[in-house]
């Protein structure tokens, strides 16, 4: 018995050590970034690993430097995220409901087409899309970008549909017998019963504009219309990084904190999305 126990203690200790080392490796760059955000030396080059002196100046400059209006970018991204989140959530819920609860001729075909569309590289269509939006003066325009993000979001029905599939169909049938229309079932039964997955959809579609760079960089050209990603990415280009890197860190820390908190809330849905989706095929 003692042999077994000591063996376990050894293996556990080994695991703790490995985990500690890994956590260190994984978190060190992030910690370094947070410290760098407070550095008085604003460039990437420095003699020391950690800052010599700390200051909150970088954070202050985010909101006072009129050439790099971080505050404006923050508002832009927030507005885009808000519009896109409302539109996407509605569209995804509608598509998921149709594909999960309703039976009609083209259902299977639509699902397959949705899958195939997902296989094209995203920005293969971006040039034509840009031109189209340009015709309606929707480029370099945050509403236009929000629409470009959200109008086609119906293809992302997968996880929500999987959730709807697990809501017992008997509930719908009972409601049908009581004379409820399908419309009523959708709004008053399916949606209230699916709160967790709706929260998940809202959060993911709210977060994704904060993380997107390509589409935003193609669509937006004037600094006043930038989103956070486009704006602070400029601070890491070769010419800027020598002076603005600390500010990039400050700007990143500022938006990362709320996103990380939201993500920690969502992680259980993320797991369910993978494991549930796979089992259902």
């Amino acid at each position: 018995m003692i042999g077994l126990r000591s063996k376990r203690i050894i293996s556990d200790t080994a695991i703790y050590v490995i985990l500690l080392v890994m956590v260190f490796v994984w978190l060190f760059p992030l910690v370094w970034m947070i410290l760098k955000a407070f550095d008085t030396n604003t460039g990437i080059s420095s003699i020391t690993i950690f800052p010599k002196e700390y200051t909150a100046e970088n954070f202050k400059l985010l909101f006072t430097d009129s050439n790099n209006p971080y505050g404006k970018w923050l508002i832009n991204t927030f507005v885009i995220a808000l519009i896109s989140c409302v539109v996407s959530t509605l569209l995804i819920l509608m598509v998921s409901f149709a594909l999960s609860r309703l039976r009609f001729k083209a259902r299977k075909k639509l699902m397959n087409i949705g899958l195939i569309l997902g296989l094209f590289p995203g920005f293969l269509s971006m040039i034509a899309l840009y031109y189209m939006f340009n015709q309606f003066e929707l480029t370099d325009n945050i509403v236009g970008l929000a629409l470009a993000y959200s109008l086609a979001s119906g293809t992302g029905y997968y996880i929500v549909k999987g959730f709807f599939d697990t809501v017992p169909i008997a509930i719908d049938e009972a409601a049908r017998i009581d004379g409820a229309t399908k419309n009523r079932i959708f709004w008053q039964m399916t949606i209230p019963l699916s709160k967790p997955i709706i929260v998940y959809t809202i959060l993911t579609s709210f977060i994704s504009p904060w993380c997107d760079f390509i589409m935003a960089s193609v669509f937006l050209s004037s600094p006043n219309n930038y989103t956070i990603a486009v704006g602070i990415r400029n601070w890491t280009t070769q010419t800027m990084v020598a002076e603005y890197f600390a500010r990039f860190c400050a700007g990143s820390v500022l938006i990362s904190v709320p996103i990380v908190i939201l993500f920690l809330f969502m992680q259980k849905f993320y797991i369910a999305g993978i494991t549930g989706g796979a089992a259902k095929g």
Binding site: W210, R233, T236, S256, I259
Partner: peptide
């Protein structure tokens, strides 16, 4: 500890 890394938007972690 590990999830924090993926929670930060990836353009930030990658540029960093």
């Amino acid at each position: 500890c590990f999830v924090v890394v993926i929670a930060v938007p990836d353009f930030i972690t990658l540029l960093m």
